[in-house]
Design a protein around this nucleic acid. Structure first.
Lengths: 217, 217
DNA sequence: CATGTTTTTTACCATTTGGTAAAGGCACGA
DNA sequence: TCGTGCCTTTACCAAATGGTAAAAAACATG
């Protein structure tokens, strides 16, 4: 039952192993997020990590193993903000908080965003299964939650699934298409400030139910 | 001044040349859009085109030349809908038409969308210059136009640049992240129908100015 | 410090990749 | 039908790529 991707049965990693595995993962994140799986090379990763190629293969079973490990490790924290959307909270606040956090993640972790973007664009050949088994249930759960919020009149009527897609699309755009954003809005700081203002206003307008006036009663 | 990318000085392409160039471009579109530049191989393109690798290099100067040519050729038609947004038209209609067309392009031409997505995500190393010289002026012009519409009260107040980003992000998401959308919304037809409804409603809500009631007067 | 273990390096290898040279085939006008 | 120029194939090549074997070095531990 242990596929070796999450909690290893023997977590006894030596100090050196921990340090080097981290180095490799970080280097791999740089390279894979920039070139995609097929475009990345072990030599590049090795160089970026400051280790020799055989040394890297001492720590990982191969190029694909590094990629898969990276995706699996990051998937959980990447989805954390969605996961943490609280069914007990005030619906509009919960969603606006989620949106703000998601946009903040695009700013703070653009490499992670692009890593996933590359993988999905190229057909999700390696995390396809994980999408179905890990993401889909979470997605369905949150769709149900949002639908319930709409039903209770706490949100304006909206298709939950497509709402989530919109949030992902808009927030991740700033990380994934950074190269384009940089060309079209050269002042990077202003661009981020504007992004926050625009994105938050846009979704607030979309989601605020008629007659809303702050938290219920 | 002729960089050989747009209008060749000698457009005398034989019937065979036209046929094979088209085949190659189409095959290259398949391969590049799926794997990105570095992940794509000439052998793949050759096989997909039903031609030998040397034969492909008879028509193009190399892998990079094919990629650049493809990007340049498709850029114009990819941006056509934005280009055609009419300053004389009714602002809200113009924008809603643009959005609908853009979404329709994601459905009809997902490969093109992914081709550009791959290129931009990977840092736009080959169309970076073209973005600055070709896209930027168009972007600025349309931003000015939208700003003017807002000033005249024909649209709700909105940041033009970020509005365009949002439109691109949301519409292209359905093409670029098709693999993920397919997992999360297995009924593809319903997903597209829902996408149209949701996206159009969302932007209409965002853009409709207060007190709007159809075309002016 | 002796000894067993972990980590790193050196030296390879088979395959793939982008690309070339040159010969062969083919169409098409004279 | 014959040649001439366009197209295609065959046979290569050097470099890069993912990966391996095994020796050497570094390390920990008694």
């Amino acid at each position: 039952m242990d596929d070796g991707t999450s909690l290893p049965t023997a977590p006894k990693l030596s100090r050196i192993q921990k340090r080097n595995r981290k180095r490799i993962m970080d280097a791999a994140l740089n390279v894979f997020s920039q070139h995609g799986f097929r475009g990345a090379t072990l030599d590049q990763i090795a160089q970026e990590a400051g280790l020799s190629k055989p040394n890297i293969l001492y720590y990982f079973d191969g190029k694909e193993a590094i990629h898969v490990d990276l995706l699996n490790t990051l998937m959980a924290e990447w989805l954390a903000p969605l996961e943490e959307m609280n069914p007990e909270g005030e619906p509009l606040d919960e969603l606006m908080t989620y949106i703000a956090r998601k946009l903040e993640m695009s700013r703070a972790y653009p490499r992670e965003s692009r890593l996933f973007a590359n993988e999905i664009i190229q057909g999700a050949p390696r995390i396809g299964p994980h999408l179905a088994s890990g993401l889909k249930p979470l997605f369905d759960r949150k769709c149900d939650l949002i639908a319930e919020w709409v039903r209770r009149g706490k949100l304006a009527p909206v298709d939950p699934g497509h709402l989530i897609f919109s949030i992902w699309a808009v927030t991740q755009h700033y990380a994934d298409f950074e190269a384009q954003v940089d060309v079209l809005m050269p002042d990077s700081d202003a661009a981020w400030a504007g992004a926050h203002t625009h994105v938050e206003a846009m979704f607030r307008k979309l989601l605020t139910p008629p007659g809303y006036s702050g938290a219920h009663r």
